[in-house]
């Protein structure tokens, strides 16, 4: 518990988490407002449409989570951390927990904020959260952000450089997972089992909650599992990354 408090103080006593939190919320909710403001009869505002901007928050959260650890290496404070708490696994897990909780909270704020602003701008549209799919599309965002934050912290521990970790994370999430599907024959099968495809499936999948024409929404996640197992798969990937990161951090000189 003390460790969590320590990591919480460390996180919030620097500026970057505040900035990232603000940017994540502003981008996501702002995009939600944009979607609501521009919705019309042909492309009505749906619950899922309020959440089209959740990827903005996702990438910013991952940057924030990676920075939470890489800046410790950058400024050498990781040594002070390990001097204060020689059990590195504990120290890193505490940090991961704090970052993941923040990410989860931000995810819920972003999702319900986007949904709320949609309701505000287009009170007439049907934005009631009735089905499990609709609940997942909104309330699920926090879970995805939290798991993504764990992955980002793990990558941060492994890479130790802000620039490298951020580049790796963003390029992987936004490019690699998409481009693999261009590989003939096997590409789609690989794509179906990639972690962030799984996370997208959890938010948007089964059945299609967008209720939109294919041209007016993001392509549906074509993942190999149904939504909840997909989230578990995503979380499992995060756990594996974290275990590798902890093992490496314990073996390395700080």
């Amino acid at each position: 518990m003390t460790l969590l408090a320590v990591e919480r103080m460390k996180l919030f006593s620097t500026r970057s988490p505040w900035w990232c939190s603000l940017i994540a919320l502003a981008l996501t909710v702002g995009f939600g407002a944009l979607m609501a403001g521009t919705a019309n009869t042909e492309t009505p505002l749906t619950v899922a449409a309020t959440q089209f901007g959740y990827t903005f928050g996702l990438v910013v959260i991952m940057v924030m989570a990676a920075l939470a650890i890489t800046t410790e290496y950058r400024f050498g404070t990781i040594r002070a951390t390990f001097l204060a708490v020689p059990n590195r696994g504990k120290a890193l897990l505490a940090k991961t927990a704090v970052v993941a909780i923040l990410a989860g909270v931000l995810g819920e704020l972003a999702a319900f904020g986007s949904w709320g602003i949609g309701k505000l701008i287009k009170p007439a549209s049907d934005l009631a959260l009735n089905t499990p799919y609709e609940w997942r599309a909104v309330a699920g965002v926090g879970l995805v952000y939290a798991v993504a934050a764990v992955i980002a912290v793990a990558v941060g521990v492994l890479v130790r450089h802000s620039a490298g970790a951020i580049a790796l994370l963003l390029v992987y999430v936004q490019l690699v997972e998409n481009l693999v599907s261009l590989i003939p024959r096997i590409g789609n099968d690989i794509h179906r089992w990639m972690p962030f495809t799984m996370s997208a499936k959890f938010i948007t999948g089964d059945p299609d909650v967008t209720l939109r024409n294919i041209n007016e929404g993001p392509p549906l996640a074509d993942a190999g599992l149904s939504p909840w197992p997909a989230l578990l798969y995503f979380a499992g990937f995060a756990v594996v990354m974290m275990v590798i990161a902890l093992a490496v951090a314990n073996r390395r000189d700080a």
């Binding site: 970057s16 979607m35 990827t55 802000s162 951020i166 963003l170 936004q174 007016e216």
Partner: peptide
Amino acid sequence: QSAGAISILLIWPLLVENLVQLIPGAG
């Protein structure tokens, strides 16, 4: 600033430019 510049430079082409398409009408 490396972190900021890289974030902007990657998020912009890979995400922002794609997502704007979703805006009904003007997208």
